[in-house]
């Protein structure tokens, strides 16, 4: 067990390192630099700027300097937002994204698990068919469409909800729906098929035969086993919500990390791009590691190697 955890964490660190290296070199492949776009910059001024941020040194030297800083937890300073370090920006923006994503995960699980079970227990009946239709449709709508359609109907047409920002609790409604529609549908489908599997198992019949009441059989025997695939899905789900948030944050103009990342790329704010990529990557990798380890605790049958 301990060996597995150590191995898994080492793997995660290696992945983070690969991501950091990839991002660094990919980014520097682009012709042009962060200071070219600014008007009225004399060559001397530009050279001075580049010297100040160490951009005049050979690429590999820059790489070593950056990685050295990274090991000390130093993500550098933003080139475009003067006076802000990358760590400051991430610290300001990430809580917004995390809160939104966290609520969306919660909503997706709270909707998906009961609906999926309901559908499985009523297999072939009207309720099952309705749930299948909706969950199948739900995984065919990209999040940007959910966002725009919600915005059109709920705030432009009916003027029920605020369309921008995250100032009031009501303004959370649309972004959360937009973010959680796809995962909720996916979890519903996942839950339905695994629940159908479990219902057919011998131990369920045994439990009922020896007189375990139905609700107890469902909660103690069926649900516990059927929820396992959902747990494995939580890792990729978090990754999805991080990426879904790029769109959702852009459309609803939410000051989150996703929006910051998307806008940093065209402006070539190298340290900010690097910082956000590495941070988000580490976060996703960490979540995957936690989910993998948690899975082993939930399902004792799994022997970790």
């Amino acid at each position: 067990m301990a060996k597995y955890i150590v191995k898994r964490i080492l793997m995660g660190i290696l992945t983070a390192f690969v991501v950091a290296t990839l991002t660094f070199f990919i980014m520097n492949l682009v012709p042009g630099g962060p200071f070219l776009a600014e008007k009225a910059v004399t060559p001397q001024a530009q050279a001075a700027m580049e010297a100040k941020y160490g951009l005049d040194k050979p690429l590999f030297q820059q790489y070593l300097t950056y990685m050295g800083g990274l090991l000390h937890g130093d993500l550098g300073v933003s080139l475009k937002k003067r006076g802000f370090t990358v760590a400051d920006i991430i610290g300001n923006r990430f809580p917004v994204s995390a809160r939104l994503g966290g609520i969306a995960v919660l909503v997706a699980v709270l909707i998906g698990v009961p609906l999926g079970s309901l559908s499985a227990f009523n297999r072939g009946k009207a309720a099952d068919n309705i749930i299948i239709v909706f969950s199948t449709a739900g995984i065919a709508i990209p999040s940007f469409l959910t966002c725009t359609l919600l915005m059109y109907f709920l705030s432009v047409k009916m003027k029920l909800l605020p369309s921008l920002g995250l100032d009031t609790p009501a303004s959370y409604i649309m972004p959360v729906i937009a973010l959680s529609l796809y995962p909720a549908s996916y979890i519903t489908r996942l839950m339905r098929s695994s629940m159908l599997d479990v219902i057919g198992q011998d131990y369920m019949r045994t439990a009922r035969a020896k007189g375990v009441p139905a609700y107890k059989a469902v909660f103690k025997h069926a649900l516990r086993n059927a929820i396992l695939p959902v747990v494995t899905y939580l890792g990729p789900l978090l990754a999805y919500l991080m990426t879904g948030s790029f769109i959702v944050e852009k459309i609803f103009t939410i000051p989150g990390l996703g929006q910051e990342f998307v806008s940093a790329i065209p402006s070539r704010d190298y340290p900010l791009i690097m910082g956000t990529t590495i941070f988000l990557a580490c976060f996703i990798i960490l979540m995957n590691v936690i989910v993998d380890i948690a899975y082993a605790f939930i399902d004792p049958r799994i022997k970790l190697k």
Partner: peptide, 20 residues
């Protein structure tokens, strides 16, 4: 390793970078 790399981050970067 490739599987755990957050794909959309890299895609957005690459799409921007490969253009020129």
């Amino acid at each position: 390793i490739l599987y755990t790399i957050p794909d959309v981050l890299i895609i957005i970067l690459l799409a921007q970078v490969l253009k020129f």
